[in-house]
């Protein structure tokens, strides 16, 4: 059974059809890359899959739950099993990198502060930012921000990791490093 199953997805904005009868299956353990021109609806599809928007018609099953019809509390449960890194990284500017990564752990677990610190360090080390935890997002380079966003997305050990244009705006070397990191994380 696919972990994500999209059937007959139709999305419209102000009468303009962005996604038309889209079908998609993603198996557990699979890495799926969506490629397409600017404005073709890649980010729109991701926003639908993570339940940020509701489609005009069609269904999206994530882990067996139809997120287009489920209740708000079921959607929240589903969100806990998904880690998302947005295109703009979307780190909270008022929090340093450590606190950004610690946020989901503080909110959704009852771990002691010392354990959270350890988990955060581990996640940051996995993305190569162990020495930059005290920095604030505005002090990071574009590539570091993306890696910090990946670390935050990984904080709760999600079953599904969604990355929206993880290497957009990065130079080829940093982009290749990030791609390698994603493959490494998949292996881990």
């Amino acid at each position: 059974m696919p972990i994500i199953s999209v059937r007959g997805l139709v999305v419209e904005y102000d009468g303009r059809r962005v996604l038309n009868e889209l079908n998609l299956d993603i198996e557990r353990g699979e890495t799926m890359v969506l490629l397409g021109g600017s404005g073709c609806g890649k980010s729109t599809l991701l926003r639908q899959i993570i339940g940020l928007e509701r489609p005009k018609s069609g269904s999206i099953h994530v882990n067996g739950t139809d997120i287009t019809r489920c209740s708000k509390s079921d959607l929240k449960k589903m969100h806990r099993s998904i880690g998302v890194a947005f295109q703009s990284a979307a780190l909270f500017n008022s929090l340093n990198v450590e606190d950004n990564v610690a946020l989901p752990l503080r909110e959704h677990t009852r771990l002691a502060d010392s354990v959270i610190e350890l988990v955060v360090w581990f996640k940051l080390a996995a993305v190569g930012l162990a020495d930059h935890g005290k920095l604030f997002p505005q002090e990071l380079s574009g590539g570091m921000k993306k890696r910090a966003a990946v670390a935050r997305a990984l904080a709760l050990g999600p079953e599904i990791l969604v990355l929206d244009e993880p290497s957009a705006g990065l130079d080829p070397i940093v982009a290749a490093e990030l791609d390698e990191l994603i493959l490494l994380l998949k292996g881990a």
């Binding site: 339940g51 929240k76 969100h79 909110e107």
Partner: peptide, 13 residues
């Protein structure tokens, strides 16, 4: 604008 609000939602907050 910077998708931080969306980020909160997908963190179930």
């Amino acid at each position: 604008v910077t998708e931080e609000i969306d980020s909160l939602r997908v963190m179930a907050l």
